[in-house]
Structure formats: structure tokens, C-alpha cells
Design a protein around this nucleic acid. Structure first.
Lengths: 216, 216
DNA sequence: CGACGCTTTGACCCGTTTCAACAATGGTGG
DNA sequence: CCACCATTGTTGAAACGGGTCAAAGCGTCG
């Protein structure tokens, strides 16, 4: 029924920005391979480094993530015209490239958060957030060993995890009792990084840190 | 303590990409205003169209969203070096601009999903997803009135919402009983769009549709 | 027809929420 | 320097949303 495989994409782009005739033509003439994907077939797997972008032409497609315990959390549903893995975007000055990557990382973090609130139980959910904040802080040099400033309230932590304050409190106290963290007066120390990561089912890949920063 | 306000940013960027001396210099010499933000003060409000980007220099900052019922859901915690609203990125060819925007919309959708799984109860959560899919499909012309193909199973719907299949089923049947939708054999019809939006606490703004598409 | 995948239903259970009260902390003005 | 007040953290008891397990309908397609 669709005239061109790229028709939905053009239609979507024109709906969010005005395209000149040249630009529309540029899109329509992009080098293109049409691939048939079976139902339930994975297009890109976690860890792949695809060299091409992809556009959904027909049908539905979704991104998802599996936790070690097997629960699956879908991130997003994609319909024709969507570009679920908009990776390659050349022709940019290298500075813009870095900023661009940052945005992609940001989006990756969003996805991880969806998994966090959607699929992890309270204890792991909170632990996961601790792991993330710790690593993000370390990248910018704001940690001393396993200690860092954590100027947030338990109520805010609750909002960040989609839990109630009361339950956050109980979970945090549990984490203390289990010797995972210390946290008093806005200063937090991770006492058992391995244990924290384990309980959080934390995999730092999504933060896209350099090899140096990821080591721990 | 920090040498330059932009130091954390440079540090972060160098950790995710290699910057040439010129590029680093380009960042360091960006026109810059340092602003002091009080605790709990909003920097950018929903609906604002900021003309500047912002970089966190010191302290913590978070993005959040309030549902009509008052529950607050935080999207992300930002630390120094972060650019929570990387809006302005000039000097791109206009095509790249459109793609760029698309990515931003994508990220906006992620945030909405975080809110969805973190803060909405089951019924509203599912209803919200129906609203989103419907509008996304309509933008690319894949709806007929309020009818569209919805080739997904309730189990997949469960994964997308962080609920169990059983509970999704009960909620969907409730939605049918309430006259909000019909859904059989992969074809879905929204029978009461206003009611669906209301129950979902759905605000289409985050999809960034054109004025035409947003009307409904 | 039989098998398989999806939907529907029931019963029971448990994580989390809610409400409520109280303790600890820290900041403010007199 | 203390009295006061507003946050924040902690705890208990009761209620509930949603999960789990299990089995039964129901289409559909080879």
C-alpha cells in the first residue's frame, strides 16, 4: 500500500519540522536496504555496534531489556516512520559529535530508569540508583574512594524510584544493616560495591563510560 | 575548588569522546553566564522554550514531572558536567536538525514512560500507552478515524507497562466494560477518546506533534 | 482433529502504600 | 544561647493493588 519504504519517515519528519524539497529528496535517495524481519526476531542485540541505522517501514517493533532474573521490560513501541537506533549521523563537526553522543547516553539512561521503576523491586531499585549516581559522580571527579556527597532527601529518592517515602526508608535501613552503604548528613559511602552492584542487578554498560571509568 | 565552571563538562566529554585542543578550547570559550540556583528552585518549567542551554556546574539538579493527581516522578538526577536541557545546537544542516529533533522527542517519550511505570496505577498506565500509540500512528497516517491495527499481545503490553499479564487482562477488560476501547483480533478502536485521555491522565505535549496532529 | 498460543477467570499471597505518630536534626529569631 | 518551628528520618499497624499459580476457554492453523 505504501508508495515508498521511506514514506512514513518523510511524513513524520515533515510533521515535526519543515523540510525543503531538497531535503526531502535527500532522504528519499538515502542508500537503503529493505529487510524482512520475522515476528519476535531481534534486529539489534544488546552490545551490538550496528554500522547502519534502521527505519521501521511496516509493522511494529519494540526495544526491551531483560533483567538477569528474566523479567523483561519494554522501553518503547515503534511504528512505521520511527528510527529506533539513530546511530549514524555523519557530517557533523566533531564537537557536535560529542554533544550528540551525550544525548544518546542520556536517552540510554532514561531507558535504564524505565527498567528500574518498571521491573526492579524496591530494594534493588534504590541500590541501582546509588550505583548510577556513584559512577556518574566519579566520572567528573566528585568522589573520594567510595565516598561522595549525596544531598538528597529520602522523599526525593522516593520520587526518583516511584516508591513511597516510608518504604524507601525501610529499604535504605536494610541496605545499611546489610553493610552495603553508609549515609549520613548528606555524605554517602559505599561499603560494599560488589554487593551493591549485585543486589541492584547493576550493569554499568548503559552509562557508556570510558574503559577507565567503568573499571571497578 | 573547581578551576572553571565548565571543567566538569570538559571532563565528561573527554571521557566519552576524544576532544582536540581546538574543540576543548571551543567549549571553554562558549559564551557563558553563571547563575546561582536556590535549593528547590525550578530552572526550567514545563512549557518553557528556553533560548539557552544549561550546564550544571555545582550541586545536584533533577528533572521531574507532576501528574495531575499530584504525584511527582523524577526522571533523572543531574550532577556537575551534565546538560539537562541540551536544546540549542546550531550550525547543523537542516536535515540533521530534523533528525536531531526526533531524538529529542524520543527522549521525551522515554521520560514519559518513566512517569508511566513509576507513578501511574495499572489502569491509567495501560490507557496512557493506548493514547500514545494511537497518536503516533495517526501522525504517520495509519489510523482510520479511531481505529488502528494493534498487533501486540497482552503479555507484551504487560512488559511495556511493568505489570503482570493477568492484571493487564483485567484492566483491559475493565476498559472495555467502561466503553473506552474495543480491541479484537489485532484491531483496536477507541470508543471514547476523551474518556481514555482523562483516565490516562494523558497530555500529548510530550510527543511534540504539529498543531494539526495534536488536535483531537 | 489436535496442538499451540492467547485470553480469561479464580483463589491466595505479598510487597508496598497509607495513615499516624514520634524522634532527631537543623535553622531562625529573640 | 536558648526556645521554637519546620524538615527529615524512623517506626507501627492496617489496607490494598497487583503478583503468582493454576486451570479452563477459545481461535486458528497445519
Amino acid at each position: 500500500v505504501t508508495v515508498s519504504p521511506l514514506h512514513p519517515l518523510v511524513q513524520k519528519l515533515t510533521s515535526i519540522a519543515t523540510l525543503s524539497n531538497e531535503e526531502e529528496e535527500a532522504i528519499r535517495t538515502l542508500p537503503l536496504t529493505v529487510k524482512e524481519i520475522r515476528a519476535d526476531q531481534d534486529v539489534v542485540r544488546d552490545g551490538d555496534r550496528p554500522t547502519q541505522s534502521c527505519v521501521v517501514v511496516e509493522g511494529f517493533l519494540c526495544r526491551y531489556k531483560q533483567l538477569p532474573d528474566g523479567t523483561r521490560q519494554i522501553h518503547s513501541v515503534h511504528v512505521p516512520g520511527d528510527m529506533p537506533d539513530l546511530q549514524s549521523l555523519h557530517e557533523q563537526p566533531r564537537l557536535a559529535d560529542a554533544l550528540w553522543r551525550d544525548t544518546l547516553v542520556d536517552a540510554a539512561i532514561f531507558r535504564e530508569w524505565i527498567v528500574n521503576v518498571g521491573a526492579r523491586e524496591a530494594y534493588a531499585r534504590i541500590a541501582h540508583l546509588f550505583c548510577e549516581i556513584f559512577l556518574k559522580l566519579r566520572v567528573v571527579g566528585l568522589t573520594e574512594g567510595y565516598t561522595f556527597q549525596l544531598p538528597i532527601t529520602q522523599a526525593e529518592l522516593a520520587d526518583a524510584t516511584g516508591l513511597s517515602t516510608v518504604h524507601v526508608n525501610r529499604s535504605v535501613m536494610q541496605m545499611r544493616a546489610n553493610g552495603l552503604i553508609r549515609w549520613e548528613k548528606g555524605q554517602c559511602t559505599i561499603e560494599n560495591w560488589q554487593g551493591l552492584k549485585r543486589d541492584a542487578m547493576f550493569d554499568p554498560t548503559y552509562l557508556h563510560l570510558g574503559a577507565s571509568a567503568a573499571a571497578a
